[in-house]
Design a protein around this nucleic acid. Sequence first.
DNA 1: AAACGATTGACGTGCCGCTGACAACTGGTT
DNA 2: AACCAGTTGTCAGCGGCACGTCAATCGTTT
Lengths: 234, 234
Amino acid sequence: MNPTLLIAEDDDALRDGLKDLFEAEGYDVLPTGNGRTALELWRQYRPLLIVLDVMMPELNGFEVCQQIRREDNQTPILFLTAKAQEIDQVVGLKLGGDDYVTKPFGMQALLARVEALQRRAARARAGADADAMPDEFSFGKSVVSRKRHQISRADTTVPLTLRELKLLEVFREHPGEVISRNRLLNEVWGIDYYGTTRTLDQHIVQLRKKVETDPRHPVYLLTVHGVGYRYAPP
Amino acid sequence: MNPTLLIAEDDDALRDGLKDLFEAEGYDVLPTGNGRTALELWRQYRPLLIVLDVMMPELNGFEVCQQIRREDNQTPILFLTAKAQEIDQVVGLKLGGDDYVTKPFGMQALLARVEALQRRAARARAGADADAMPDEFSFGKSVVSRKRHQISRADTTVPLTLRELKLLEVFREHPGEVISRNRLLNEVWGIDYYGTTRTLDQHIVQLRKKVETDPRHPVYLLTVHGVGYRYAPP
DNA sequence: AAACGATTGACGTGCCGCTGACAACTGGTT
DNA sequence: AACCAGTTGTCAGCGGCACGTCAATCGTTT
């Protein structure tokens, strides 16, 4: 069975275009031009991903999203927005796993976003299912607690900041692999981030202080010159 | 649907000229004279190829490239450069799949570059799909891991630098074939590389240290006098 | 205001890749 | 066989740039 996609967009021409596009890419598409039926379709079919126009009759995109999120906050939602004001609202939602595309947009851009969201959601699902997400995981000689935001080694326990925790998560998910600086920036900071590369270094420095026995000669968080970093499990 | 091209060039006349040229060739063109809108347009449309002037208001070409590469390192980027200094910077980026054209340039030359880049990108895409690119491949008595940037033999594991990894890739793709020095320089260092031939030797030396049991009497990386090198699989 | 995390700039350091000098080698010529 | 010109191997050193580090700054929260 193909992955199913719910498309709620009230412009008939655009909706048909999107339907054709995604069907050509091998998706099953549930099209609708109305917020209320969008909700009904979602309840009935539970699509893997939802594309929501913000401006729609009956229920607008935000309202639909709100309803869906009451029952399910896994399924990724991609908003189609026209005005800058709407964008702010979408961003303001800060709902994990969601994204938006501003009109007008190109088909390639939409495809790329949909696929990125799918990958992200798939990773999240896999991670959640596989180990039921225990609170703690080990890193090097230390043990990290997600809930408590802290890392313990031997007889000391140090707090972890948000960025540090996220970084550790990324390394834990790919032990032994070299992870490029760009990828780290994307995974930890998000896709549209303008910061310098010094920022990443700095956080690595802080992490090494908490993870390594001798921060000057790291054993677990290794740098790969010109590429990125690598976590060498013990 | 036509292939879409993003053209970022702050000289109005030149930009219009390029737009006409490529539209006549059957491309859809997204023109802009500004780095920031270039990024926005890229996000909205995901063009198949990007032509970037280096000198631009708001964000220069390098900065735009850097941002784009954080989310996507497939799409080819063609830089338009005016000064020799800029050229060095472009070459210095070492970003695969990119190219540059120096001003002033002829329209035909530009077209040729664009089409060459398209072909290269298409090949890369096809290749990536075809074999799902396993992480490891064997070389001689060793096993090379791309993700880890390292090579393991018997009981030792040694890190590989960028150049070494690329060289090994080239040899792996053509086992038994003699590969000329020029071809190696092209494939690993890029089309226009000015270095001496000593550079290549040097890297071969380093590689043999990591690949051969007795580096003085190589078994896998053989030199073919007057031509180049040959990888003799075990 | 104080505390904290995140970010950035400035500066020092180390590594990778490049190069020049010279030795060793190869293949061809006498 | 000896020789020679061109090519390759090896070593040591250099330079640029990526990275490590420290400290100052900014923004947010309390």
